[in-house]
Design a protein around this nucleic acid. Structure first.
Lengths: 210, 210
DNA sequence: CCGCATCCTCATGGATACTG
DNA sequence: CAGTATCCATGAGGATGCGG
């Protein structure tokens, strides 16, 4: 663990726990879903194996994550504790803040479709739910996510079966742009392929039908 | 600047900008008030002068902060840009998340009364405003802060004159404990000295009068 | 294979002294 | 006052090894 800031300040003490390099990205991966060591390694391109191990130990000691033994295959899985899951709020805040950094598109950066789960929720949160109940899938690469409207807002999670009113097929930048409702993608929005009931998709994003 | 994560992910790109050591604490200081180099050095105990300079340059290049020249004395002051000030939300989220780390009190850590401005606001935010309008001062060390109730909630800022209904004299841990409304301080709350109308103070914290 | 542990190199951070 | 310059300890990143 990096040296403590030694300050009686909530922000400093929070950063003593999650401020080290990779720590918040590990939490991001576990906010998407509990994961095995190898899955974390794959979802965090660039991390060294010794660092990942160190960080997991430190986060476990701090009470942010915990090791779980699966009943069936005895495999170790890492998951957030209740307190660790509370990092969703500040992380979603950072994601909303980062919008200007995302408009230029992926460039040479790595991209995993699963990383869309958090920003979709962060950007859609607080938006009024569409008038009628719709269930929309968003397909990126080989992953399919589901947006489901509820009374309290719009939920985002990986699709696990069930009927979908529509499927929106797009890449990462386009999906984020639609969700934010503000991104222009350098004035050159890429084509978005919509399968199914287009009106349902537009209802989700609250865009007026042409 | 530390190496980029190289991920097309809002969190990763945000951390590319503010994830390096000391960066968010610099933003914290500037959220309290614009400051000169020396004031930052004093408000960030432990930072090396070369690091502070490096970080200020990087944050300026990234568009998070800007250098301002005062008209009267031509002194350089550092201040947040509009985008940089948007970090208040995720920072307040981290402060709320850190509450369990603060209950043990300051220990050997440094403490500056000015650091209370952000957590007071973060912890009181969303609380219903008291029924009647009150203006309460909180005195810690030699600093006096003012809580002012408005229609939308409770504002916190350094006291700059004006009548106060009451003054609450306490140290940092007690103030945070009262603000959080949940901390027990190991079952041993320290005495809080109240000057003025105690009922006004209790109205702010929504505690029933005994 | 998975889940690490070890080794090595180099970039970064921290402390202090110094300067325009 | 507002930084530079310097030195050294530490941490990050990459490659590889190894038991289960």
């Amino acid at each position: 663990m990096s040296r403590s800031y030694g300050q009686y300040c909530g922000l400093a003490r929070a950063l003593d726990v999650v401020g080290d390099r990779w720590n918040l990205l590990i939490v991001r991966q576990l906010l998407i879903a509990p994961a095995r060591y190898r899955e974390l390694l794959d979802g965090l391109p660039g991390v060294a194996t010794n660092l990942l191990t160190d960080r997991l130990r430190e986060l476990e000691t701090a009470g942010v994550i915990e090791r779980r033994l699966a009943e069936d295959d005895n495999a170790v899985r890492y998951a957030l504790t209740t307190w660790g899951a509370g990092l969703r709020e500040p992380i979603e805040g950072l994601i909303r803040w980062s919008t200007p950094l995302m408009v230029c598109g992926p460039g040479e950066d790595h991209f995993r479709a699963e990383w869309l789960v958090l920003p979709l929720r962060a950007l859609l949160d607080g938006r009024p739910p569409p008038r009628r109940s719709v269930s929309v899938g968003i397909a990126v690469e080989d992953r399919l996510f589901q947006l489901r409207s509820t009374r309290s807002g719009i939920e985002v999670h990986p699709h696990e079966g069930g009927e979908l009113d529509a499927v929106l097929r797009a890449d990462g930048a386009v999906v984020l742009g639609l969700a934010a409702g503000v991104l222009d993608l350098d004035g050159a929005p890429r084509p978005v392929e919509i399968e199914g009931d287009e009106a349902a998709v537009r209802a989700i994003f609250d865009a007026p039908a042409p």
